[in-house]
Design a protein around this nucleic acid. Sequence first.
DNA 1: ATGCACTCCTGAACGC
DNA 2: TGCGTTCAGGAGTGCA
Length: 270
Amino acid sequence: MPELPEVETVVRGLRPLLLGQRIDRVLVRRYDLRWPVPADLAERLRGARVTTLGRRAKFGLVATDRGDTLVFHLGMSGRFRLDPDQPMAHDHVVIETGGHQLAFFDPRRFGSLHLVASDSLQSLPLLAGLGPEPLDDAFDGQSLARAAAGRRTPIKSLLLDQRVVAGLGNIYASEALFRARIAPARKAGRIAQARLERLADAVKAVLAEAIAAGGSSLRDHVTVSGELGTFQHCFQVYGRHGKACPSCGGRIVRLVLAGRSTYACRRCQR
DNA sequence: ATGCACTCCTGAACGC
DNA sequence: TGCGTTCAGGAGTGCA
């Protein structure tokens, strides 16, 4: 589920629930997520008031008036469940606030929860190495060209490198390359600047559209309230191998790059 | 330095 | 129905 548009959707869903609320209680059921949950997470959050909610790449940021920020990552299967009817096996952390219960649910436990000082988020190594936000001006054809220079890695793999652009994942990398008409296996360093500019524009466009649609829902709910994002209906290539290219009618193919499924139209993308 | 296979974990979907 | 296999939206680690 969660790439940048899905995390943005989750943050927007959490904002009205959490903003200005006092955290009454935090229950940690499992500490062994992708990274260990801080042993003092519950006591440091208890009694704190939520001041802002934001996002950096695929990380959600929940700042409190105690000077700490809760940093969450949803991994592959993470979700927040609002006021669950019944506790589920993978509700690893439960936050009680404003009369609501919010469960961090993550079967595969590839997600994580950190608590860091708000004035030095960079002290968290996971955040320190991130590249520009794709929707910011700092990310454009030029920054992409600098990152691609001399690199023999497939352009699709480069797009997944969070140091190059922070927040793209497997779905939107394929979709952006289709829009830019660039073959995903093409060596990054051998793509003309003009085409990289088109690619940067495509990245921005597909992410903006996906956010507007509430993200994509494949197997999971995206939004906190349990509604489904709808952008999966807009996929032009992702998961559509064997189906017709929406542009030329040719067959969409599936290939594997650096171990990740990749989808493309061989005729449209060069 | 670079590129990539492997790894963590669980569950769903598929083939026989 | 049941069982084994494959795959999944992430990303750090270690190896060649």
